[in-house]
Simulated scan of single mutants.
Amino acid sequence: MSNFPTVICVCSAHRKQGKTQLVMRIVEGLIKEGFILGTIKHIGGESTFDNPKVKDTTRHAEAGAKLVVAVTQSELISINKRENPTLDDAIRKFPTDYDFIIVEGFKRSTYPRFIIIDNAEEIQGLNETGQVLGLTGHIAQKKDELDKLDKIYPVIKEKDTESLILIVKNLRHYQILSYLPGTNCGDCGFQDCEEMAQNLLLKKVSIDKCPHMTAKLTLEVDGNQIYIKDFVQNIIRKSIEGMLQTLKNVSRNPRKIIIQIDSAEN
């Protein structure tokens, strides 16, 4: 499957609760199943290559991550200087044919996340922005603390890598399914989009197998690919190409056109 990687965050209430170890377990488990992935590590404040926190990113690479990016207050380490770089800035550095990007930190992001906590109180603020895929840490062994939570979350016990990978793969499958047109037409040769998504997850077929996903126009809103029917694609494409014909110094037969609209922040 290409075109977009699944982004998953690993967050904790405090430092030294095992985020790096959990990232490594996820990376190693996915690598064993043949997935391509990279990692991102969030490092608070200013930092340099000599900082132990930056050097700690090498553990991500040792686990098998193909590309590792560290994000500090002023840098995307090994990439370029940038004022206040964000998680999305780092994500855009990864090739679109990656299957996963596993992020260490960024607890305020809106991406799905695993949360590492010791007790129920620590979940405050960690479960408000992104989908919680599961809880782990010392709380996994404390039934009395789990009973204090206002919601029921999947609980992953220490060293239960199999459950981690199953949750991650299920998320990927759901995202692939939502990316497909949902017509269940059978034109791809499979019974429905669900079966197509499962085969894409297992890398038994490519997205080109779906004739409705090989169109010449794609729309992305806030990082999410939006499916557009062939008829609507044709209208939009012809309108844009017609507009370009009125502009000077524009090729009459452009190979690729990119239009980006940045909404003003409130």
Rank of each mutant, 00 (worst) to 15 (best):
D222K: 13
L133G: 09
Q131W: 00
R172C: 05
D222C: 11
R113S: 07
D192A: 04
V155G: 10
I236E: 12
R113G: 06
G45W: 00
T129E: 13
I43M: 08
V54T: 02
L133F: 13
A70M: 05
Q73L: 07
L135F: 11
R92E: 14
A197H: 00
Q141I: 09
F4N: 07
V168P: 05
S263D: 03
L201C: 10
E265Q: 15
L247S: 07
I261K: 02
K203T: 05
P181D: 08
T86K: 10
N266E: 09
L126W: 03
I40Y: 08
S74A: 06
R92P: 06
G223L: 09
K53F: 05
T20E: 03
E46G: 11
I117P: 06
E62L: 14
G242L: 15
L217T: 14
E83F: 08
A70Y: 02
Y174S: 04
Y153C: 09
S2M: 07
L202C: 05
K66E: 08
G223V: 00
L201E: 15
I261E: 03
I235C: 04
N119M: 13
F106S: 12
S251Q: 11
A215M: 10
V10M: 07
T136A: 11
G38Q: 03
F49Q: 07
A65N: 01
G44R: 12
E33F: 12
G105I: 15
I40N: 13
K204Q: 13
I101F: 12
T218E: 15
N184G: 10
T136H: 08
Q198P: 04
I123Y: 05
D118K: 14
A70N: 05
E241M: 04
N234G: 09
I101M: 07
A70K: 09
L149S: 08
E46A: 13
L164Q: 00
D99P: 00
Q225K: 13
E28K: 11
Q233H: 11
R15P: 01
P112M: 13
L171E: 08
A65I: 02
A63M: 07
F231Y: 10
L76Q: 09
L164M: 05
Q124H: 05
F231G: 02
I8P: 00
D147N: 14
E83M: 03
D50H: 03
T218K: 15
A197C: 02
K159Y: 15
D118H: 14
I139F: 13
C9L: 06
T218M: 14
I36P: 05
I236M: 15
P85D: 04
Q124F: 08
R59A: 05
K209P: 01
F49V: 13
M243N: 13
I165V: 12
I240V: 14
S74Q: 08
I79R: 14
E162G: 00
L87G: 06
A13E: 10
L37C: 05
I235F: 09
N84K: 15
C193F: 07
G137N: 11
G38A: 04
S74P: 02
P5E: 02
P154R: 02
S163I: 01
I115R: 06
T86R: 12
G223E: 03
T218G: 13
M213E: 15
Q245G: 01
E158K: 03
